[in-house]
Amino acid sequence: MNYKVVLNGCSPNFSNQCSSVSAFLISSNILDREAQTLIFYNNSAAKLKLTAETPTSLLHLIEINNYEAETVLSILAELEKPNPADLYLFPGDYAGSELAVRFAYRLGGSSLAAVESLQMDQHQIKCTKGVYNGYLQGTFKLSKKPYCLSLARGILPNRDSQVIEKREAVYSDRSEERQPAYIVKRTVEKAESLNELESAKFVVAGGRGIKNKDNYLKLQTSASLLGAALGVSRPVALNGWAPLNKLIGASGAIINPEICLALAVSGSPAFFGGIEKSRKIIAINTDPQTAIVNNADVAVIDDYKAVLDELTRLIGEDKNH
């Protein structure tokens, strides 16, 4: 079964795309010397840099004007339709999740989003992914080639990463491609991102139990004193107590700090999926039955405010000495 990888070279997270796909290929045991990576990019000055970390040795770099899904889809379908691969892998970011589904439809294949693992033989593939808000893991059998999979978010780089000594690249220039007709005007603003949370070594995460915006603001002060980045669960963001870019979980940041201090968080799978890669999870909760207490490395059964006040006091004392 041959496969191709499709990456977005216009995105600042290109390196993460490469490492997550490489890790997935290793864990699925489907490394193939003949596999190819297709990279859409818009900065020709940086194209050599794009070839350094790719998950396959054969590369096809396609220069475009800017990343528009409609443009990329039509180029991809045009390139691949005459002789499609059996399997296409897309990273689990916004672009990859969209492309996998729409590209599969255009090629008459089957798609699955947020895939966690893959088993395949010559005739079929089986994939697992989270269902029921992440409470369950489903195993799916895909029935029509080409199989187009977008990966689950938060797949971490594999320590036993493959070494590719030589890469061979071909280049295509599609930068003259017109902007899709439905777009009258397009602007991109590099927004304040979730990257601060995703790269933090110490994260304090507040849940529904913090109860109001005032407590969120107090939590912000405490997190700052502790030297931690602050994130929140979905109910906190939905209630408007915290800005959306603080959201951790399925719709927000997938973090992997050394320590995650989960305060008044119930620990629903949608949230837990965002913190489970943390090296140590310390939960502070008044309810010993809640899911986060079962899943944490250390659980403190108490009011989070009392514990946090004491913690900040101790750290303050420590700093003064």
């Binding site: 916004y94 777009i183 603003e189 963001a237 408007g240 959306l244």
Partner: peptide, 24 residues
């Protein structure tokens, strides 16, 4: 939201819009 930041498009309908982020 896109991987490279926030994208604002002025578009001519028709179009399908998918909402993937909770709103406060």
């Amino acid at each position: 939201l896109a991987d490279e930041g926030t994208v604002t498009r002025v578009i001519k309908p028709p179009c399908v819009l998918a909402v993937g982020t909770p709103l406060p």
